[in-house]
């Protein structure tokens, strides 16, 4: 089994980057590998709760994220500095099972992987 980390670094709306990263992540999860995900930079905006995207004719990305543990993606990491720089606190996140990690821990996390998929 390979360790595969998805890195999602873009905001949930404005481009399809985050949406299509999530689609690839869910496809990966059913493939039976050790699939993990790291949200950093503007990617942390995907995790903010109470997203109302109906007014821009988009499905809510935040509403899809709680499905991750159901797909056996249980290692969900969030970069702490990215949250802090954007004024987002842990209790505003759609998922309560995330691990909030600092830059040094991100560095260690990347080093542990067999493959990185960057979105």
């Amino acid at each position: 089994m390979k360790k595969i980390l998805f890195i999602s670094r873009h905001s949930p709306y404005g481009t399809s980057q985050a949406r299509e990263a999530l689609e690839a992540l869910l496809a990966a999860a059913v493939y039976g590998q050790d699939t993990q995900v790291l949200f950093m930079d503007d990617g942390v905006f995907q995790l903010v709760n109470n997203q109302n995207s109906a007014t821009i004719d988009q499905k809510s990305l935040g509403a899809s994220l709680p499905a991750l543990p159901l797909y056996d993606v249980e290692k969900i990491y969030v970069h702490s500095e990215s949250l802090r720089n954007r004024g987002i606190s842990a209790n505003e996140l759609v998922l309560d099972s995330v691990q909030i990690i600092d830059s040094q821990a991100v560095s260690r996390l990347l080093a542990q992987q067999d493959q990185l998929l960057s979105f």
């Binding site: 595969i4 690839a24 590998q33 493959q115």
Partner: peptide, 8 residues
């Protein structure tokens, strides 16, 4: 799935 197969 073929992207994941490539990763593996």
């Amino acid at each position: 799935g073929q992207l994941l197969e490539a990763a593996v």
